[in-house]
Write a protein that binds this DNA or RNA. Structure first.
Lengths: 151, 151
DNA sequence: TATTGTTATACTCTATAACTATA
DNA sequence: TATAGTTATAGAGTATAACAATA
């Protein structure tokens, strides 16, 4: 097994505290976000899949399952629900007839745009309680957290 | 309705991007952490409740439900499971016989200590992929995220 | 009459195992 | 024989509604 270059640091009080704070905050924030659905008919993972598709363009169900860290049967169900809502299209894979290609529709794109405004309104309410320095720290860390999530 | 002092900033590209990255990262990281259980017999919310108790000392089931953003019946079940595992004690409230007081046991404290080591090992694996500057940003933001989560 | 906590019940989301079709 | 996706089924976790005890 290999250890990170700064493994020793993680035993320091500050880093251990940061790790604890991060874990606790992620679990609790995720619970809040679940309730604050931008579209009442879309689950958090469905939203996440649409976000991934918006970044990737297209993907196969298998790729989506790996990226979202869910099992293939779960992704089958999620994609089917999204298709039923007219948010994605399912097409045959051009080179491998076992696979399928998932693409987001215009309706999904419009919904993502609409949802962004609602998310901003919700988060603005929370950010209101932060001072500018605190918000700056979150803003700086956000892309790093996203990188962490997709490792 | 009142608006945050920096509402305008949230419509800027950078802040909107940060908000999107934060939401996506929180949802995906929470899914990872669910799998990476420090104790296989404890759900993420059970862990979170123990963490809250460690900070607060004691709390009533109702207080815990509000802090963890779950409904009272869910907290009833969670507390009962924790009690069955010998991790919390339930005592009558000294002033109000409707309420109960939840306290963590020594066993819970020892388990939290053990779990911290396991968490560090898991997160160290992820942090390995970050450079020092990136990790510094996460470390700075961690306490702010915790504040955000408990608003 | 309002509030705290509980019981009973149903729903949502995800996983595992077994199956089909294609490579 | 291995891989992509699906179907069927079960389990975990949470919510809502109805109820009991106390304020």
């Amino acid at each position: 097994m290999s250890y990170p270059k700064d493994m020793a640091d993680l035993t320091h009080g500050d880093d251990a505290a940061a790790v604890n704070a991060l874990r606790s905050a992620v679990m609790r924030l995720s619970r809040r976000l679940k309730h604050q659905r931008v579209d009442e008919s879309l689950s958090p993972t469905e939203m996440s899949v649409l976000g991934t598709l918006a970044r990737c363009g297209t993907a196969t169900p298998g790729e989506l399952a790996r990226k979202e860290h869910v099992q293939p049967p779960s992704m089958t169900r999620i994609v089917a629900l999204l298709e039923a809502k007219g948010l994605v299209r399912l097409e045959p894979h051009p080179e491998d007839r076992r696979q399928k290609v998932v693409t987001q529709t215009d309706k999904a794109e419009a919904m993502l745009e609409e949802s962004r405004r609602k998310r901003n309104a919700f988060l603005a309410g929370l950010v209101e309680a932060l001072d500018e320095d605190e918000w700056a720290k979150v803003r700086e860390a956000a892309p790093v957290l996203e990188k962490l999530a997709q490792l």
